[in-house]
């Protein structure tokens, strides 16, 4: 079966050529692909290139981008706009700043709908789908009246409102605390199962990706160094960088006894153990955000 998306792309920014060098990957129907790499490796640039939003940042993409049998890179701007939001959804990193602070939540969700369709959708059902309180009062709130987790759910709701074939999530959980993070991951999983949406899940955290991605691609300095099923990556990492990433995962001592040949059990254990570690990371990123 054809994949939903096949990409072989390079990307440049005017003052920084070669951010992506011949990055090649495919996402199958209903598949969740995890894309892991350290910060600055070009993960966000991939997300921007798939939607051709990199042009709005002055950058340029080359190569081939086949989505549902069309080459997106050759599409005229107007047609590309029909694809954004309707066939490919995007969820961004810091949810509170990704929402327009001066518009009510309801207006922003409705806007996502009206961009491609007439009439009005069942907003309350949409809220329910992403585990938000299905009340009209909630739609009247402004982004500043939401928690970070709620804002992220609103963003997800806007991204899936047209039931896109592909959902791109660019580090959607790195601004969240661990508990909310786990909830959001569950939400992605259930959206994938309910709607059959393929998901490109971008993260710098191998562990969070491992818990629900079918396949994982490892990105290093604008190149994909390894791509394989999750189990293979964990059991049999090929590239030294992947091995380094795996070695960096904190291994709780009691894990060693139970993990001989049941990797999935090992991950869930490790996730539980990594809670404290993750909490510190979430706090750090908050400090960074408030400083900048």
């Amino acid at each position: 079966m054809n994949p939903v998306l096949y990409a072989r792309i390079s990307a440049d920014y005017p003052n920084r050529p070669g951010v992506l060098e011949d990055v090649e990957f495919a996402i199958g129907r209903g598949e969740i692909l995890g894309l892991v790499g350290e910060s600055g490796s070009g993960k966000s640039t991939i997300a921007m290139t798939l939607l051709r939003l990199i042009e709005s940042k002055g950058g340029k993409a080359r190569g081939e981008l086949l989505f549902q049998d069309r080459n997106l890179l050759a599409l005229p701007g107007r047609k590309m706009r029909r694809v954004r939001g309707r066939e490919i959804g995007l969820v961004l990193q810091s949810p509170l700043s990704a929402l327009n602070p001066s518009l009510r939540i309801g207006a922003q969700i409705l806007e996502a709908w009206r961009a491609h369709r007439q009439g009005s959708p069942d907003l309350l059902q949409l809220l329910e789908m992403v585990n938000l309180p299905p009340e009209p009062g909630f739609l009247n709130r402004y982004p500043r009246q939401l928690s970070v987790g709620q804002a992220q759910r609103v963003l997800i709701a806007m991204a899936v409102i047209h039931r896109p074939a592909l959902l791109i999530a660019d580090e959607p959980t790195s601004a969240l605390d661990v508990v909310t993070q786990a909830e959001i991951l569950r939400l992605f999983s259930s959206l994938n199962r309910q709607m059959g949406t393929s998901i490109l899940y971008i993260s710098h955290d191998l562990l969070s990706v491992a818990s629900f991605c079918h396949r994982i691609a490892i990105l290093q300095q604008g190149r994909i160094v390894e791509a394989n099923t999750t189990a293979e990556i964990f059991r049999n990492p090929q590239h030294p960088y992947t091995q380094a990433l795996l070695a960096a995962i904190p291994k709780p001592p009691n894990c060693l006894e139970t993990t001989t040949d049941c990797p999935s059990l090992a991950w869930s254990e490790t996730i539980n153990q990594a809670v404290d570690d993750g909490q510190y990371r979430a706090k750090d990123s908050l400090v960074c955000a408030s400083r900048s």
């Binding site: 939607l51 939003l53 709005s56 706009r81 029909r82 694809v83 954004r84 939001g85 309707r86 959804g89 995007l90 961004l92 990193q93 810091s94 700043s97 990704a98 929402l99 327009n100 602070p101 001066s102 518009l103 806007e111 996502a112 961009a115 491609h116 963003l155 806007m158 991204a159």
Partner: peptide, 28 residues
């Protein structure tokens, strides 16, 4: 104004550039 993250969200929704300007950029 155009560099704000929420403008990226608006673009990813597939909004028309004029609508992005009038609804999201100028009011801010």
């Amino acid at each position: 104004a155009y560099a704000q993250p929420h403008i990226l969200t608006a673009r990813a929704k597939g909004l028309h550039p004029v609508r992005i300007l009038v609804r999201h950029v100028l009011p801010g």
